[in-house]
């Protein structure tokens, strides 16, 4: 797998490169800013399968990563995009997923210490899946809500909901929870029914719907 990286911290970037190469991936481009990455990415030669972007980069050190991701997606929809951040914020994740829709992931930088895990997540993104860091999902689910409909879910259904929010497909959820895909499908239907969400056709749309629900659930009465 060919990968391009943009991160302004040389130390973190080199650590990441070491980790990825140790896991068998090939880092084709390294840049210290989004602009530099885009310039080098579309110059010539083979495009990478995926890019890894820091959320906060020069020159503004604000949500750069999301803007760069949007531009790359617009210029080459075939490149998977992973945004890394030290902020576990659902609002950024939502923004990113709303902007890109598929083949995108939002992970915390802490999780990259697990080399095998990082590469497998990248593979899923390249395959078109959408991934959300479990820390964010966990926090959203832990969030106290007044009279929340989430209370009406049984523990198994909550496990299923959490994995849906992370972007797992039914098959993936079945593997994670050691259930049959049919059982998972039944749980998913039940969760959607209880939460009052409409069944969506793709997993990518599903994660966005669940995320939107979780972010706003506290505000509904």
């Amino acid at each position: 797998m060919r990968i391009a990286i943009a991160d302004d911290s040389t130390l973190f970037r080199s650590g990441l490169v070491l980790l990825l190469e140790a896991s068998g991936a090939q880092v084709a481009v390294q840049a210290s800013s989004g602009a530099e990455l885009i310039a080098r990415l579309f110059r010539s030669g083979p495009r990478p399968d995926a890019v890894i972007l820091d959320l906060r980069m020069p020159p503004t050190f604000t949500g750069e990563g999301i803007a760069v991701a949007t531009e790359i997606r617009a210029r080459d929809p075939g490149i998977g995009i992973l945004v890394l951040s030290t902020f576990a914020e659902a609002s950024y994740a939502s923004q990113l997923m709303d902007a890109l829709g598929y083949g995108v992931g939002y992970l915390l930088k802490d999780t990259v210490t697990d080399a095998g895990h990082l590469v497998s997540q990248l593979e899923r993104i390249v395959a078109g899946e959408t991934i959300l860091d479990p820390t964010i999902v966990r926090r959203l689910l832990q969030r106290k809500r007044s009279a929340s409909t989430i209370e009406s879910l049984n523990p198994r259904e909550r496990e299923v909901l959490a994995r849906m929010a992370e972007g797992r497909s039914n098959v993936g959820i079945a593997q994670d929870l050691h259930l049959s895909p049919r059982t998972v499908e039944a749980h998913v239907t039940s969760v959607f029914g209880k939460l009052g969400l409409e069944q969506t056709d793709t997993d990518n749309n599903r994660i966005r719907a669940v995320l939107a629900f979780l972010r706003s659930a506290g505000d509904r009465r």
Partner: peptide, 24 residues
């Protein structure tokens, strides 16, 4: 920003290197 972009990124890089070292 100094904490976030300086110390924190370096430590994260260090964590990645530790992982690599550990795998070797």
């Amino acid at each position: 920003r100094d904490l976030h972009d300086g110390a924190q990124q370096r430590l994260l890089g260090l964590a990645a290197r530790l992982t690599v070292a550990m795998s070797r």
